[in-house]
Design a protein around this nucleic acid. Sequence first.
DNA 1: ATCCTCCCCTAC
DNA 2: TAAGGTAGGGGAGGAT
Length: 1023
Amino acid sequence: MQNDWIKCIRQEINDFKWPPSKNARICSDHFCNKDYKGYDGERKVMLKKAFPCFQDIKKVILSYLFNNFNKIVLNNYSQCHFINTTLKGGYKTLMQFSEISKYTIVTYDLGDKKSPSNFPPEGGYMKAKMDKLEKQSCAKEKRSNIFRGISIYVNGYTDPTSEVLKRLVTENGGTYQYYYLKSRVSHIIATNLPKSKIAHLRDEKVVRPNWIVDSVSAGKLIPCQNYLLYNQHSTFFDSLKDFTSSKSVMNLNTSKPSTSFLTSFENSLSPTTTTANNDVTMDVSNDEEAPAIRVKKVGNELIDDHLNDQLPAYGEADDWGEDDEEDENVSECLRSTDHLQDVSRVSNSSSANAEGDDATQLNQSSNISSEPLNRNENLREHHQHSPQPQLPPANPSIISKQSPAGGFQINNVSEFFNKSRLHHISQWKLDAKSYVTRLQKLATKSGSGGVHKFPGREKLMKLKITEEDVVPVVPNGDGDVYIPEASNGDERVYAHIDLDCFFVSVALINRPDLRGKPLAVTHLRADDANRQGFNSKSDIACCSYEARQAGVQNGMLFGHAKKLCNDLVAVPYDFEAYQRVSKVFYDVILSFTLYVEAVSCDELFVELTQLMKVTSATAEEIVTCMRKDVFEMTQCTCSCGVGSNMLVARLATRKAKPDGQHFVERGGEREFMRGVQVQDLPGIGYSLHDKLKSMNLVTCGDVLRQRTTLHQLQQTFGSKMSEADSFLADLSKEVSRRLTLINKKGKHITLKVKVRSAGAPKESYKYMGHGICDNVSRSSTLKVATNQADVISRECANLFRTFKIGIQISSLESTAQHRQHLTISSSSRPSSSLSTSTNHTNNIRKYATKMDAPLQRHITNESGADVNETLHFNDDNNNNNNNNNNNNNNNDEFSLSMSQIDLETMRELPSEIQNEIREALCNKKLKQQHQQNDVHNNIVSNNKNNNNKQNDVSDKRERNIIDSFNNVEKIQQQHQLLLLRHIFNQRRSSAQVDEASSRIESNRISLKAQTKPSFQLSVSRWN
DNA sequence: ATCCTCCCCTAC
DNA sequence: TAAGGTAGGGGAGGAT
Ligand SMILES: Nc1ccn([C@H]2C[C@H](O)[C@@H](COP(=O)(O)OP(=O)(O)OP(=O)(O)O)O2)c(=O)n1
Ligand SMILES: [Mg+2]
């Protein structure tokens, strides 16, 4: 089994011709289950580069889990995220692999759903409020003074949540800091930190939360030595770097292994399945395109008969037609490792042939080859039906211990995915995309122009003839041929069509009685929703416009929505119907034109240019007709926006909703855009909006300047794109994308300026520099390995640590804190938009001047803002620089002065703005802290520290390499050797046991990590 | 300076 | 109960 596994990895390496790019080191991107980005060879172009077929790892792992365990207990909301997180990255993935081979995931669970809420405005606001209250109340009742003089800052997710820790600490005499401030925080509590953060906090006492808990239960302050989170442990990560460093040998080929990664891995994972059909054929594609070597999996389970009758809804994707394009297949092959079945491939790649064939089986197989999406399904079914090895189920006691009440079980993977709306819509999106491209390709082929009929278009033309009595240009011939990029960028007209509250509309088809009521599509049953809906944490996938008026939004938790709208009626999902309607919707639009770009199952762009030429209809006529047809065919209303680029079209749609249409004239885009809130720009979500907001505030007197920057950028960009044309007229699809980018870039540029020029003033810091230098040197001595697992065996502890470090789930406490201070979005905030209406700017100006001095001072101080920059928009405040310098010198008191000023100025400001200020300050503070750390690390303690570090690192490396060599037999390629050995090592310690008998030992390790829904992993050791 | 990795953000 | 998936993209800072 080990060998199989290693072979698989090796095969992967060979097949995919590592390294994937010029200087690639092994990194998470390579093992991500999605494409990753890189350089085009040219400058700065971000490109996706397909790399190994780790797309399938997820399924493999799931397969493993569900094959080997009768139960996997999942707690609310973490399940899918777990999958993502687990498989997210290379080290992580590999770690997981090695871990999974050793450990069994029994359960993971975690925290609150969407905490902080998916609706940061409300959730964050409420949370901040509650925090405040709680803080006050906590301060009142003091039980002991265990933590006197100790000030903690909790970073990210911790096992007792930060709330609990805060309570514990404050109740026992300590203080709790909401933001990390070096001078104030004596201990940082964390269980998991991103790498960057580890570096930043290297010189701090980073302690595991147990320290708090244990101290409280012990009734005294336990020395934190044994609770330090980090020590000098070489990570898997590090060793992988060793691997990559020897990439010169990369291209040596070993003899081609005859086993595919997946196959053998699955073999090894599910030893009880029959192996008769588990052959693997290497498919060297002999098509014209890149001769990528593909591994075909003959998954015997995949084509088991008993799978067929239980295909989930979107398994019927042949609705969308078969894919008979060979190059399609090739590209699909290129995209990922398909679980291609021999059956489906026997007659070469034209899977269209399969369509007429008998039996669901073939049907299914053709799906598999034409629609990669369906692989999921098949595999899922495979999980469901493949024989379950007779392993003892996970120790129930563990389960019950680990899963608090409310945990639930899912017994197979498909059950989960089948009910996941997000899963479905992402599948449908892919379906739609491939459907459109397929039709387009068909129509591109010369001679096949007649394949696709345009009944809709014909109708439209008839209409025109009768109405205007004008014979339009005869559409036959060119009209039917799809030519990508047929029209000039500057004459294009885009329409964006979006079904109104899609899920609800579909539901209303069969439930007309519900029309007019506030509806919400959710998993809740209607009566439950009525009775106890207030506590429900079920997501609302889609709500009707009636409900939206009450403030309900898509994605809200039902409980929350119910509070906003007491009459809210829960409507169940009907995934099949959604898919059906979506298909009809696309067909209707495609019956007009093929110049369509699919956005999602209920949303698409149409490029009207060609259609207008052919039919000589105006955009309005076309769109009206389209919408009418859509309604006739689907019984669902849709809205449509038309504009000269996609962005404008999209925004116009927003304006048009519901059931309307909106046109933005050519040349009027600017005016139109002006009225758009930043928040509404696609691509500007919660976080960006937030940043924007604080930027606006930061540069507060300066919204105008911001806008002109934006303007300039737009112009330069526009002129770059097409030299001769007028500015906004030539925004084509790409330009429109850039338009949103420009927003970011505008902000970003200002940011960068600040950061960059920060170097200059910072050099003059000496006071701070010294302090940090001090800390740094101390940190190097502080980093002593500690025994962190007394309960678990030493080996497990090591692994665990590696695991933990390897996982390194993203955790940004700053963002968490950040969110707490959000303001409710419903209140109008003049300052939050980039709009330039005079009122707004005036308001902003007013606020700005009011707090310009203090704010600027602090901001420049904190972020080391560029002097020039400051001057630019702070012409009135020339003393700004002075302030800047002054404050630089007494940085210790910075926070104090900040709070003072806050109090002084803030009272006069609207509460939202107060929050914004606070937020901005805090963010800056964090950032600055880190920056200063860096700077002073470099500047002051350059030599010493670096030397130390380097020695450390090289020592570590050597040790790793030596270890590797000692433990494993020889393998030819060094790079493979290093990688494989490490994996091997990781596995080896328990691998023998692994094979002998599969049984779960009682000692388990629990692991906490923090992602959005931070989760806790409980792993038990294989025995 | 260039390119890569990690982490983040968004949309439906 | 509940089913927070998936793909696209960007930027900061690290490695070379
Ligand atoms: N967080 C979300 C957002 C959307 N959807 C699903 C349900 C929606 O019906 C569908 C389409 O999303 P839209 O953004 O187009 O929103 P609606 O179509 O519901 O409303 P409208 O387009 O009228 O604004 O996607 C979802 O499940 N979860
Ligand atoms: Mg919609």
